[in-house]
Structure formats: C-alpha cells, structure tokens
Amino acid sequence: MKRLLTTAAAAIMIFSFGAAHADPRNRVRVDQSGFANGAAAAQQGERNGTVIVQGGNGQYARGVQSGYNNFLRMDQFGTRNRVATAQRGENNFAVTGQEGRNLRADTLQTGFGNVSGIAQIGMNNTAVADQDGVNNTSGIIQVGNGQDVTVRQRGDGNISVVVQSGYN
C-alpha cells in the first residue's frame, strides 16, 4: 500500500475543516481515472459529505470524517483497488461500491447512527465493516467467487446483513 501511494500518478489530498469554512456543509468530490491513483479526503465538523469516484487499476481512496452528519460514498472500477473509510460521531453513513478483482473495502465507524453499505462485484474481494456505538447497521453485497466478509459490531442495535452470490 505504501508503494501504491508513493507511485501514485496523481494524489489529491483535500482537507476541509468545518470550523474554518463559512459554509459548514463540507462537501468534497473527487473523480479520478487512470492507474495507481490515490485520493484522500479528511473532514471535521458539521455536515460532512464526501464522494470519491475512481476508475482504473491499483487505485486507493481514503475518507476520514469527524463531526455531525457524516456521509461518505466511494466508487471504484478496476482491479486491485482499495477503499478505506473512517467516520466518527453522530449520523455516520458510508457507502462503498467496487467492481473488479482483488478489491478491498474497509469501513470503520464510531458514534451514533452508524450505517455502512458495501457492494462488490468481481472475484477475490474483501469487505470489512467495523462499527462501535449505537444503531449499528451493516449491509454487504458480494457477487462473485472467493469473497470474504468481516463484520464487527459493538454497541446497541446491531444488525448485519451479508449477501454473497457465487458463480458456478
């Protein structure tokens, strides 16, 4: 992963801190295509929203949010892509969609509303959801063979749905 980041053809680091903005909504959107791109968005405060879309192989996207109405959406298309999402505080909502092979999606949520959704289409993909706090809800859909899911929920309201559909 270190190599992936250092050899990134393009890297975008966006930091938006709510306290420093007149508009407390904190919106970030990143679109990338190509090979070995890295995208990261870090937000703090108020109504955080991030959307990252990457097409190509060897992509890496990371989103970190702290604060209130956290929303994160990650889309990746290609092989050997990875998404890492971390949310803390209040109404956390994270959605990751990946299509390709050898993909990995990690979602870490701490706080109140914790809702996580991960959809992966392809083969040999890995999805991890880690939730702490209240109202933990995780949904993971994987289509293809050789998939792997890990869900960890700690707190109240723990609900997990895993859907896996393999090919013959």
């Binding site: 899911v149 869900v151 609900i159 997990s160």
Partner: peptide, 30 residues
C-alpha cells in the same frame, strides 16, 4: 457460502430485569 466466507461478530451491554427477554443482535447470512 458459494460466494465465499463471512465472519460476523456482535457484542454489547445487556441490562434486563427478571423475566425480561430481548433480541440483542441480528444477522442475515447467505
């Protein structure tokens, strides 16, 4: 499952009075 493997771990506090019951966690698996 035919598609792969799943590991789900849930945990948390349970506070119940005598005679009470609760669904403390739920998971749907393939």
């Amino acid at each position: 499952s035919r598609g792969g493997s799943s590991d789900v771990t849930q945990g948390g506090a349970v506070n119940l009075a005598a005679g009470q019951g609760a669904v403390v966690g739920a998971a749907e698996i393939p």
